[in-house]
């Protein structure tokens, strides 16, 4: 699944960033320290490596709609990561469309009115899309049992989800190679996509019919400060997702207020 060198680079990365020599808890000093301290330091180091390794494990890039690929960190939807989508079911569905059209099995959990036909127009292959409209109160448990069997799972508004619960699911996502797309906020998501300035075309005062929406999609990635933004047809006249301009713009670094909000949520 991974290219053969991928694991190695991640390990190198861990060492690059671990300040081994300057650290007072470096191995040489630790040998002389009391046993309890040594144990605590070892645990801390292992935890740090886990976290770092988790973050830097390269997920498998999935086929992504070109209009969205340019905005996402890494240029594609990636397995092992969670993405949160705010304000639009269509945008979340569009994330699903690329992998599904490329033949991956996808799931939609807890989205009772999932507009399957609109999804099909975006490119979702309904034959390979599993729907669980009403997963009951144990949403995270249901999602967790689908992880691994499906390449991408789209989850409806999850309600409040604890950090611990999300963390356990995140580990499972990384281990099993599944991407999670959540309609709503999700702790420690890889990127937060939001749709704003939706502008529906084709409808007048009593005439016409909806023929497409121009909307701004903004992506705040967790690991880059600079949000990326693009104007998309979501959907266009035939229900597809297209970029208005090909190149996505980098925005100036977001203000501190936004940073803290996203760090908290």
């Amino acid at each position: 699944m991974f290219p053969p060198h991928a694991g190695l680079t991640s390990i190198e990365h861990v060492f690059d960033h671990s300040p081994v020599t300057d650290d007072p808890t470096a191995p040489a000093a630790l040998l002389r320290a009391p046993r309890a301290d040594r144990l605590a330091a070892a645990r801390a180091a292992a935890g740090q490596a886990d976290r770092r390794f988790g973050i830097t494990t390269p997920g498998r890039p999935l086929e992504t709609l070109p209009a969205l690929a340019a905005l996402l960190p890494g240029g594609a939807l990636s397995t092992g990561a969670a993405y949160s989508v705010l304000g639009s079911v269509a945008l979340a569905t569009a994330l699903l469309a690329g992998p599904s059209a490329a033949g991956e099995w996808c799931g939609v959990v807890g989205v009772p009115g999932f507009g399957a036909e609109a999804a099909a127009a975006m490119g979702v292959d309904l034959d390979r899309t599993v729907l669980v409209p009403d997963p009951g109160p144990e949403l995270v448990a249901v999602v967790s049992s689908l992880v691994g069997a499906l390449a991408v799972v789209l989850v409806g508004p999850p309600g409040p989800v604890g950090d611990a619960e999300a963390g356990r699911l995140a580990v499972r996502l990384r281990q099993r190679g599944t991407a999670l797309v959540v309609c709503g906020r999700w702790p420690r998501s890889e990127a937060e996509l939001s749709l704003t300035d939706g502008d529906w075309h084709g409808l007048g005062a009593g005439h016409g019919h909806l023929s497409g929406r121009l909307a701004t999609v903004t992506v705040h990635a967790r690991r880059t400060a600079r949000p990326r933004q693009a104007r998309l047809w979501l959907p266009d006249r035939e229900g597809r997702v297209l970029a208005v301009r090909e190149a996505a713009r980098d925005l100036p670094v977001r203000p501190a207020a936004t940073l803290t909000r996203s760090a908290a949520g």
């Binding site: 399957a116 099909a120 309904l126 899309t129 669980v132 409209p133 009403d134 997963p135 249901v142 691994g148």
Partner: peptide, 19 residues
């Protein structure tokens, strides 16, 4: 995975959509 989920949520809770 899907059959297990059907065992938990009911036969009609898991499926696919047909247009």
């Amino acid at each position: 995975a899907l059959t297990r989920m059907q065992g938990r949520l009911g036969h009609a809770a898991v499926g696919t959509a047909v247009v």
